[in-house]
């Protein structure tokens, strides 16, 4: 008679909230610093204006470019508005549009890339030719062209970014999918008769986690930078208020000594990007199978 199999050791079973990867994630310093930073920025931009709306968006013509004072903790900008309030509101657009654009580009690129890597050769060459074609389009240029026709709308910017930035993700995901396709366990799954969609869902996608996180990091950085440039340029067209247009409006503040009007928005852009990067690095380190092997050498046998 067949012996009863031993129950699997805990961490080889399906991951639970207390399994090794989650524990590593929760204890990872990178994840915490990134999360805290992101939380701060989210609260600053979205909750801040709710509580702190002293003279926000009110123009004080007589008090332009004033240094910090009790009434205006960060001074006033070139239009006489409260700088602290402006910084808070100014973050909303870069944050939500950055995340949405990066998410859309990642999803679109991943779909195309996985389809190309997993589908037949025809699908692969079609998708790659398409990707190569779109790859040569500078995102800011495409955004500007569309803006000249349809005017400046934040959701339009997100759409154009997603439509022009997906090839980078597609290429990476295609390479990863192709590499996975020839691994023994995928071949075994297909040989066992699993339909393709099931193989994709249960075996391919979980192994693409690392690549997906990495590509989202890159796309987020690109999205924030591209949309920053678009906002900077768009300030000349009446764009909705955000850090990028603030830098444009206050360019001359550097001459008159209010350097923080330029330095702060720029630093906030960088902090936004860094926060997501840190969270991504933490996620990848925590869910890295190599880490499992490092901690538990007996898992190798």
């Amino acid at each position: 008679m067949l012996a009863r199999p031993e129950p699997l050791p805990r961490s080889e079973a399906a991951p639970t909230p207390h399994s090794a990867p989650w524990r590593r994630l929760v204890h990872h310093p990178l994840v915490w610093s990134g999360l805290l930073l992101l939380m701060f920025l989210l609260l600053f931009s979205f909750l801040g204006p709710v509580f702190y709306h002293k003279d926000v968006n009110t123009v004080h013509v007589s008090q332009m470019l004033m240094p910090p004072s009790r009434a205006f903790p960060l001074g006033t900008d070139a239009l006489g508005e409260n700088e602290l309030g402006e910084l808070m509101i100014g973050g909303q657009l870069p944050i939500w549009s950055g995340f949405l654009a990066a998410f859309a580009a990642t999803v679109l690129g991943a779909a195309v890339g996985i389809a190309g890597g997993f589908g037949g050769r025809l699908m692969d060459s079609i998708t790659m030719r398409l990707a190569d074609g779109v790859l040569g389009v500078p995102q800011v240029v495409a955004i500007l062209l569309v803006e000249s026709i349809f005017g400046i709308h934040a959701s339009l910017l997100v759409l154009i970014f997603a439509l022009t930035a997906w090839p980078l993700t597609a290429r990476l995901l295609r390479a990863e999918t192709l590499a996975l396709r020839v691994t023994p366990f995928i071949e075994a799954a297909r040989a066992g008769g699993s339909p393709s969609w099931r193989v994709l869902l249960r075996h391919v996608l979980p192994n693409l986690f690392d690549a997906l996180v990495a590509t989202f990091q890159t796309q987020f950085t690109n999205a924030v930078l591209v949309l920053a440039i678009a906002s900077f340029v768009g300030a000349g067209m009446g764009a909705p208020w955000n850090w990028g247009s603030m830098i444009y409006e206050n360019q001359n503040a550097l001459l008159s000594g209010q350097w923080w009007l330029i330095v702060l928005p720029g630093a906030l852009f960088a902090l936004l990007v860094v926060s997501v990067y840190l969270i991504g690095e933490g996620l990848r380190a925590a869910f890295n199978p190599q880490a499992e092997l490092r901690n538990r050498p007996e898992a190798l046998s």
Binding site: L225, A228, G244, I247, G266, A270
Partner: peptide, 22 residues
């Protein structure tokens, strides 16, 4: 290198203008 990468190019340009020109 990474910190440099996260800074918007127009911001870097303005900073350089400020230091070296103004």
């Amino acid at each position: 290198a990474y910190v440099l990468y996260t800074l918007p190019s127009f911001w870097v340009g303005l900073m350089l203008l400020w230091w070296f020109a103004d």
